[in-house]
């Protein structure tokens, strides 16, 4: 059978969601941001809540998320996305509100806003991309950079004695009574992408319950910052990032998951 006989509208099983704009993503080849953008937009489309959703972009590689997501969005100052989202959600309790933040934004400069929004139980969704490095500014150490991991500001590897330990924000916010759903996922294999999408979907569906904040961490690659090919960076991530940032649900329906 010829390929041309298969490529017909009635046989379509996967296409790019219309919730993404036509603009080419500004991310490096193989970067997980693109997948997470797409999953988030697919979830809005499937839940049919695009017209009721307001997104908050942050500062970092994903600062231009609003160029790619075909929805109403604002762009918050560095670290303040959850504060901006609080302002929106408090005024519009019936809208779906989410922030899209990297590890520098959420876990360093915005730590206070993150913790207090979680602690207040703000009823929105946080999507947190953790790639252990500052990608946008050129690969400097992030609060999530692993011990011994090289970056442009830790060229000999992160020395814990000097620079402290990486911070596990996701475990930390799971301890707060205001979070309802806390999970850590990845998007480097088809199975993981499908799981991550399910998690993002739950995180949006939870907003209907009004029971607190839903927090989805995605451990992702930064092949440019890590100075690897995209394929190698995913292998490195499995070998080095996942042992420190284990995947899976940490809190479901307001209850900590016991393993």
């Amino acid at each position: 059978m010829d390929v041309k006989d298969i490529i017909k509208p009635e046989n379509l099983v996967y296409e790019r969601t219309k919730n993404l704009t036509d603009k080419a993503l500004s991310y490096c080849p193989g970067c997980g941001h693109g997948v997470v953008h797409r999953l988030t937009m697919e979830v809005l489309e499937e839940l049919q809540i695009t017209q009721d959703t307001i997104g908050v972009a942050s500062v970092g590689c994903s600062v231009l998320a609003y160029e790619f997501m075909n929805i109403d969005m604002t762009q918050a100052p560095h670290g303040r996305a959850t504060a901006a989202a609080t302002g929106i959600k408090r005024c519009w309790p019936d809208k779906y509100v989410f922030t899209y933040q990297g590890d520098g934004d959420l876990a360093a400069i915005g730590t206070a806003e993150t913790i207090h929004s979680c602690n207040r139980g703000e009823n929105f969704t946080v999507i947190f991309i953790n790639n252990g490095i500052y990608g946008m500014t050129g690969g400097q150490m992030a609060p999530t950079t692993l011990p011994g991991m090289k970056s442009s500001t830790t060229p000999y590897g992160r020395e814990v004695e000097l620079m402290g330990n990486p911070i596990k924000m996701t475990e930390l916010v799971a301890q707060l009574p205001g979070t309802y759903y806390v999970t850590r996922q990845s998007v480097h294999t088809p199975a993981n992408v499908r799981k991550a999408k399910k998690a993002i979907r739950i995180a949006f569906e939870n907003q209907k319950l009004n029971k607190g904040l839903s927090f989805v961490e995605i451990v992702s690659n930064c092949n440019s910052g890590w100075k690897m090919t995209p394929v190698d960076s995913n292998i490195w991530m499995e070998e080095n990032m996942f042992p420190f940032y284990p995947l899976g649900d940490i809190k479901v329906n307001g209850e900590l998951v016991t393993k």
């Binding site: 908050v56 604002t74 918050a76 100052p77 303040r80 504060a83 901006a84 989202a85 609080t86 302002g87 929106i88 408090r90 005024c91 206070a112 806003e113 207090h116």
Partner: peptide, 10 residues
């Protein structure tokens, strides 16, 4: 800081 950014969001 949070307060002014809540204003920004609203």
């Amino acid at each position: 800081i949070a307060a002014i950014n809540m204003v920004y969001g609203a």
